[in-house]
């Protein structure tokens, strides 16, 4: 038997999943649009005149993506944790099954 609480929890969980993946898709598209290198761009590490100047574009984009993914996953984890705690607390207060 589905209780309203459980339906709400499941709906919110799926909405959170969809929202997170949509945000990641936006990052993905941005990275492809702005960071996509052309085929001709080769390895740039022949000289080391200035550390930052020598870093390749894809490497910098890689780091940016890692940071974006970390922030997104922390956000997702935090929101899902609050959802779990909220739903568990609500079900305990009602004294029934979650």
């Amino acid at each position: 038997m589905r209780t309203p609480n459980r339906v709400a929890y499941w709906t919110k969980t799926r909405a959170l999943m969809a929202a997170t993946l949509t945000l990641w898709l936006i990052f993905f598209c941005l990275a492809i649009y702005y960071g996509a290198p052309s085929k001709g761009q080769g390895a740039s590490q022949e000289t080391l005149n200035g550390l930052f100047g020598s870093l390749s574009n894809s490497y910098v984009w890689g780091c940016i993506l890692f940071f974006a993914a970390s922030i997104l996953i922390s956000w997702f984890c935090g929101a899902q944790d609050r959802l779990d705690e909220g739903s568990t607390g609500a079900s305990k207060r009602q004294g029934g099954k979650p």
Partner: peptide
């Protein structure tokens, strides 16, 4: 950083 960008970029992604 020694790989061609066209190869390394999609792998990181």
């Amino acid at each position: 950083i020694f790989l061609p960008e066209y190869v390394s970029f999609p792998i990181i992604l």
